Simulated scan of single mutants.
Amino acid sequence: MFDHYCTACEQRQLIAPSQVTSIDNTDSGIFVSFTCWCGAEGHALTGRKAHALVA
């Protein structure tokens, strides 16, 4: 589980594993696609490499 701010419903939502539609390892980090509780598609880039890009 992780939290995500949804721009469609303008709320911070807790995303459950059942809402994840795909996980892809990329050179920039782990790209997670999911469906918000409101039905909007969302994406998140996470992992050690993604955090190194921000620092």
Rank of each mutant, 00 (worst) to 15 (best):
Gln11Ala: 07
Gly29Asp: 07
Phe2Met: 00
His43Leu: 04
Cys6Met: 09
Ala8Cys: 12
Gln13Val: 12
Asp3Asn: 02
Ala55Thr: 06
Ser28Ile: 01
Gln13Cys: 12
Ala8Thr: 13
Asn25Tyr: 07
Gly47Cys: 04
Ala16His: 06
Ile30Glu: 15
Asn25Leu: 14
Ala44Arg: 13
Gln13Met: 08
Gly39Arg: 06
Ala16Gln: 13
Gly39Pro: 07
Ser33Gln: 13
Val54Asn: 03
Ile23Cys: 09
Gly47Thr: 02
Glu10Thr: 02
Ala8Ser: 15
Ala55Ile: 04
Asp24Cys: 07
Ile30Arg: 14
Asp3Phe: 01
Ile15His: 10
Asp3Pro: 00
Ile30Tyr: 05
Thr26Met: 10
Pro17Phe: 10
Arg12His: 12
Gly39Met: 08
Ile23Met: 08
Ser18Glu: 14
Glu41His: 06
Leu45Arg: 05
Ala44Trp: 00
Arg48Val: 03
Ala8Pro: 00
Thr46Arg: 06
Gly47Asp: 04
Val20His: 08
Gly47Tyr: 09
Ile30Gln: 13
Glu41Trp: 00
Glu10Lys: 12
Cys38His: 09
Ser18Val: 06
Ser28Trp: 01
Cys36Gln: 12
Cys36Asp: 13
Gly42His: 03
Ala50Gln: 03
Val20Thr: 08
Met1Phe: 05
Ala40Met: 06
Leu53Arg: 13
Ser18Lys: 10
Phe31Val: 01
Gly39Ala: 04
Val20Ile: 15
Phe34Lys: 10
Ile30Asn: 10
Thr26Tyr: 07
Arg12Gly: 03
Ala44His: 01
Cys9Ala: 04
Trp37Asn: 14
Val32Pro: 12
Ala16Pro: 00
Trp37His: 15
Ala44Ile: 13
Val20Glu: 12
Ala52Asn: 09
Glu41Thr: 09
Gln19Glu: 06
Gly29Leu: 11
Trp37Ile: 11
Ser33Lys: 13
Phe2Glu: 00
Thr35Met: 14
Ala52Gln: 14
Asp27Val: 09
Arg48Asp: 08
Ser28Gln: 13
His43Gly: 05
Phe2Asn: 00
Ala40Trp: 04
Leu53Val: 00
Ala55Asn: 11
Gly29Phe: 11
Trp37Gly: 13
Cys36His: 14
Ser28Tyr: 11
His43Ser: 05
Tyr5Glu: 06
Ala40Ser: 15
Gln19Gly: 01
Arg48Asn: 02
Thr46Gly: 11
Cys9Leu: 03
Thr21Trp: 03
Ser18His: 10
Asp3Glu: 11
Pro17Ala: 09
His4Asn: 08
Cys9Gln: 02
Val54Lys: 10
Thr21Leu: 03
Leu53Tyr: 04
